[in-house]
Design a binder for these strands. Sequence first.
DNA 1: TGAATAAAAGACCCTTATATCCTTTATTCA
DNA 2: TGAATAAAGGATATAAGGGTCTTTTATTCA
Lengths: 150, 150
Amino acid sequence: MSTTQSESHVLSKSCQYALRAVVYIAANATPSHLTGAQEMADSLEIPKHFLSKILQQLTRNQLVSSTKGPNGGFYLSEENERTTIDRIVEIMDGPGLFKACVLGMPECSAVHPCPLHFQAVDYRDGLYHKLKRLTIQELADVVHKGHVQL
Amino acid sequence: MSTTQSESHVLSKSCQYALRAVVYIAANATPSHLTGAQEMADSLEIPKHFLSKILQQLTRNQLVSSTKGPNGGFYLSEENERTTIDRIVEIMDGPGLFKACVLGMPECSAVHPCPLHFQAVDYRDGLYHKLKRLTIQELADVVHKGHVQL
DNA sequence: TGAATAAAAGACCCTTATATCCTTTATTCA
DNA sequence: TGAATAAAGGATATAAGGGTCTTTTATTCA
Ligand code: FES
Ligand code: FES
């Protein structure tokens, strides 16, 4: 009589880690002290090698910047700081997360709605539009002001 | 330079299938013709054996009713019809889906918010409260009136 | 009673997400 | 130059979700 529950989530773990890491970099990296993967892994309690993979993906897609070697690490260019959260989500979890039907139907629109479309769509779109306007820098500011956990 | 994207989702596939199946039963089962797993699998285009597993889980938890043998199948008792959607989601995906932090932090509250808490929480709660009040029967009615895909 | 039917149950496999390890490349500085 | 450092990259391992198959149990009805 074992009731197996598949753990579901809005954002994949990779995406959650990515967001926390980027905010961490924004809040902690300075020109004289870049943020290393090790430091981040320790501080955020994310498996180091997994974090590295994620950071690689983000740098490849130019959402964060990095330099190798001693005193190397990750940082954000001015342009990176203006990146909006939805871009990170899109890179990590793909586009379509905020487009897809909650019931997994092939189409999602008011013309071909599923039974839950009208209950779900405003929630989904609401969050999406907020993330579209929210920048890394803005999140980092919130962290600086304290009162949020990372 | 391959950018692997982990597919994420609000509801697990099992849960999506469960919801569609239950609504299908509500909309199609009659006392003289119960809904069989085969019929549902064909109509909803869900792998039959996988669907069976899911239906087993739902019947074990008394969210749907069933009888074996010829002319057997699934149906909803009056009580079943008054089940709210959130119960199904809870059985399939576990509680905590609507409680958990979007960034995966151990706590989620206004007292210990993550950087995205205030952007995400009202939408999350909004959907949750809708599903808490919405019954299977109400969804089935929408289907009967047409204009929704299943 | 027994053949047919359909759900219940359990064992098993495949794919994907998550996580770890090892090697290579770039950079610093003594 | 060369030793040390840290990211980049590739290969591999583990866990969970998704999916299939076979056997068992309950029910109907000829
Ligand atoms: S059709 Fe299902 S959410 Fe839009
Ligand atoms: S603490 Fe992250 S969503 Fe509430």
